[in-house]
Simulated scan of single mutants.
Amino acid sequence: MSDTDSFIEEVTDEVRRDRLYGYLKRYGWIVALVIVGIVGAAGYTEYRRAQAEGKAQALGDAMLAALSQDERDARAEALAGVSAESAEGAAVLAFMTAGAQADAGDTEAAAQTLSALTLNADIPLIYRQVATFKTLMLDAPNQDAATRRAGFETLAVPGVPLRLLAEEQLALLDIEAGDSDGAIARFQMILDDAEATPGLQRRALQAMVALGGSPEAPETANE
């Protein structure tokens, strides 16, 4: 390489450095702002995560403290005094509170606790569906058959995880109404359903036999 070429290369490098420094002086604040934003967002996310974990731990500690009470009434009262900030936490707390109230013999209060949960649109749907089912079971003595049937029918639809349990309750309502044939048909449907648990199928089979029905094995029914 000649001296002239070397000189030109040095000058070119110098010009590039000058341009780079110029860009940094002109637009460096944008780069700095982006970096600050990234760091700040990461810090805020970590803060929110730590805050959520802290709240969940505090809720868990409060529920454990309430459950440590010796008397059933005291446990129910202590749980009723706990508050939850997240929707999922509120759902879990409501179920535990209702369970303690039912154990203490106050089924009316338990049904009211669960009923309030079913009306909370912020709670995930599955929790509201479970609360609806439990409310119908707990409050059965205070509801007529038509009201209970309407409630279980809203759960006995495709896509609802409690569908078959709701069908079982509808079959029991059929028995209560004297419709043995309708009950047998529902129990047979439960036996034929691939999603039915062994325990549910066993109960359906026993009920059909008690009603004088002739249960069909799922393989036979599906032929």
Rank of each mutant, 00 (worst) to 15 (best):
P141Y: 08
L117S: 07
L138S: 04
A65R: 09
R128L: 13
A76H: 06
A121F: 00
L191Q: 08
E77L: 11
A58V: 07
A58R: 04
M63A: 05
A87S: 15
D73R: 09
S214A: 15
A78K: 00
L172W: 01
P161D: 09
K134H: 03
G212W: 13
M137R: 04
L165Q: 13
F95A: 11
G182P: 10
G159C: 06
A171Q: 01
A110P: 12
S2W: 09
A109Y: 12
A111G: 11
L205H: 09
R48A: 02
Q69G: 03
E85C: 08
P141R: 05
E223I: 08
A98K: 08
D13G: 03
P124F: 04
M189S: 13
S86H: 02
G213V: 10
V92I: 14
G54M: 14
G199N: 09
D179H: 09
T107E: 14
A42F: 11
F7S: 07
A102N: 13
P218W: 01
Q57D: 12
L114V: 08
A140E: 12
R75T: 04
T197G: 06
S86A: 14
I38L: 14
Y127N: 01
D192K: 07
T113K: 01
I30V: 15
L125P: 00
Q101H: 12
F7Y: 14
E168Y: 12
A42P: 00
L172F: 00
D73G: 11
A177Y: 06
T135Q: 13
A116W: 04
G60N: 15
A110G: 11
F133Y: 14
A131R: 08
A177M: 06
A58T: 13
A166Y: 01
D181H: 06
G178F: 03
A52I: 14
D179K: 07
N120L: 11
D179V: 14
L119W: 03
R203H: 06
S180I: 09
Y21M: 15
A196Y: 06
E88V: 13
A140V: 09
R186A: 14
R186C: 03
V39R: 01
D103W: 03
A104H: 02
G89K: 05
A80W: 00
A177E: 14
E53Q: 12
Q188H: 02
Q206W: 07
D144A: 10
A78P: 00
G81E: 15
A185C: 03
G60V: 02
A52C: 01
E9T: 12
F152E: 11
E10R: 12
G199K: 01
E195L: 12
M1L: 14
L165W: 05
D179A: 02
R17Q: 15
E10A: 08
A217D: 03
A84Y: 08
I8W: 06
A146M: 08
R148M: 12
Y27P: 01
